[in-house]
Write a protein that binds this DNA or RNA. Structure first.
Lengths: 303, 303
DNA sequence: TCCATTCGTGCATATCGTGCACGAATGACG
DNA sequence: CGTCATTCGTGCACGATATGCACGAATGGA
């Protein structure tokens, strides 16, 4: 049973004519005739009594019409409802990012986002666990990486950089840190993740890369905790710019080796908006991506 | 949008797997995958987020599911309702017959019919106008004719015969009526319709046909009125057996020329149940035909 | 009676649905 | 981490179905 056929049935019942409906729908009358005949066969019930000039609903046809007419309308509504949910910046958006990035870069932007899209409810899952977009029904993930692999679609929000920093008080009472290699004489504040614990990489203005072994008696996670330790003057730390830019500007932290790019993994990395598919992208996701890109870009360009 | 596709969608939403649904329905998984993809294209909305091991409804998919789930059930009900109306001896039956036949042969049978089929409402249109089955939405017509022509379906209920009759009092005071030709000396009671007004036909035991011109100063319609005139002794009348059998048995009328078959049109004629179509014949019509055939046949065999 | 319109059907063809084969991705398991 | 079974998506071929066209029969109006 085809919904188009049901619509044809409704039209024929109203018009009392196959030919009139065929004309209105730009179909051949034989198609309408057959569609109705097929529907009758499908149902096992005669819906119309026919003569060439007259068409009348049977009692069964009457009953079917009464039942089916509201349903056709409901189905249109079902479609419209689905389209509307998808097409409008409303509904519920499930967003995930790491704890620190979420709190540092996304949370402060929520008031403005809410102001712009008051019909859009946000569900933020800030976690350092790498949530599965399908299984956890995530609409949008913000991920920090040099690039995004796999089937997922990614849209770059902003570039990110790492810097080695330390508190002024730490620097005042410590041996000088003029070159990256000087770190080896210091107890560095290390991030929990693999490469961050053993060696940091530096690239100078000419592009030469230097690997510096690092060690220390403090390993921390998440990145926000590392920042706190650095602010407390516990040692040098390798931290992302978006986390410490304000501390640097406020003098609470100082950047070491400003002529060098620093990292523990890759020098070129970014924050990405990641979502499962481009096809039929709900509007709510679209506007969130655009908002974040715009907002974070504005932050980046003010450095 | 196909209802089968909607059912597949519902199954997939419940099972969270294309493959499982394909297996349950004995389909290839690619068919399920395509059906859902086509539905998404049709709607312009993504209903599921997919990974090979995981399938999750989108928010739009959720909304659509909630809307569509009750509709599938309602459509099944619509079909069932139509089938039920058609399949059961219930509902409303529109029946037509000529005034006289209706009152004489059908009306007395209504109590028994109602007793048998209490859920079946009868709408009887006894009229001498030849109603159109389609335009007037007649389920069943009882027609008196030698045969039924055209597209309509006819089922013979019983044979009918005409007889020339007169009241005993009329015969006592009139010239003798021993042969059909004797009618010419009498003022016959004539029926309004064409051939009944000018000549009656007689066929003897050997099959020889004699045409007798008839005349008189009284022309009547319907047949019941003609019968009344005959009972009043106003003259000889050509009347159908079903109308006068009881009068003959009660001696109120006498049959003339018993060795001859009489008619104004054709000698072999019958009462027919006529209905628009055999295809998907509603049960209510079926039982009415069967009832009338059985009941009228019983009347015929008791003569 | 004539004629325009309508429904139904045969036929040919275009379109669509579906199975099969296969590749890529996913997770569970050892 | 590697292996493997399972799952979804896609190309291809082919069968099934939908549809237009032509035409005949019937209907009703003039």
């Amino acid at each position: 049973m085809d919904l188009k056929t049901l619509d044809v049935f409704l039209d024929v019942a109203r018009a009392g004519s196959f030919a009139a409906v065929a004309h209105a729908r730009d179909l051949d009358p034989s198609s309408v005739s057959r569609a109705i005949a097929d529907l009758e066969t499908d149902l096992g019930v005669r819906l119309f009594q026919r003569s060439t000039r007259r068409l009348a609903l049977t009692e069964a046809g009457d009953v079917f019409l009464g039942r089916v007419e509201p349903l056709a309308e409901e189905l249109r509504r079902a479609r419209d409802a689905a389209v509307q949910v998808s097409g409008a910046p409303r509904g519920r958006l499930r967003l995930t990012a790491s704890v620190t990035f979420g709190q540092r870069c996304l949370l402060p932007r929520l008031p403005e986002f809410r102001r712009r899209y008051p019909d859009l409810a946000l569900e933020c899952l800030f976690t350092d666990a790498n949530l599965d977009l399908v299984a956890d029904r995530i609409d949008l993930a913000v991920r920090l990486a040099p690039a995004i692999e796999g089937d997922l679609v990614a849209s770059k929000l902003m570039d990110t950089r790492y810097r080695v920093v330390a508190a002024p008080a730490y620097l005042d009472r410590s041996p000088p840190l003029e070159r990256p290699a000087d770190l080896q004489a210091h107890r560095c504040l290390r991030f929990t993740l693999g490469a961050y614990r053993t060696r940091w990489l530096f690239r100078d203005a000419q592009g030469a890369i230097e690997t510096v072994p690092v060690d220390g008696d403090l390993t921390l996670s998440p990145a926000g905790a590392l920042r706190e330790a650095a602010l407390l003057g516990l040692g040098p730390a390798l931290l992302p710019d978006w986390l410490i830019d304000e501390d640097l500007a406020g003098g609470r932290l100082r950047q070491l080796f400003p002529g060098w790019a620093a990292t523990a993994t890759t020098f070129d990395t970014a924050a990405w908006a990641v979502y499962p598919s481009r096809a039929f992208l709900p509007q709510k996701v679209r506007v969130a991506i655009d908002f974040l890109r715009e907002s974070l870009a504005a932050q980046a360009s003010s450095k």
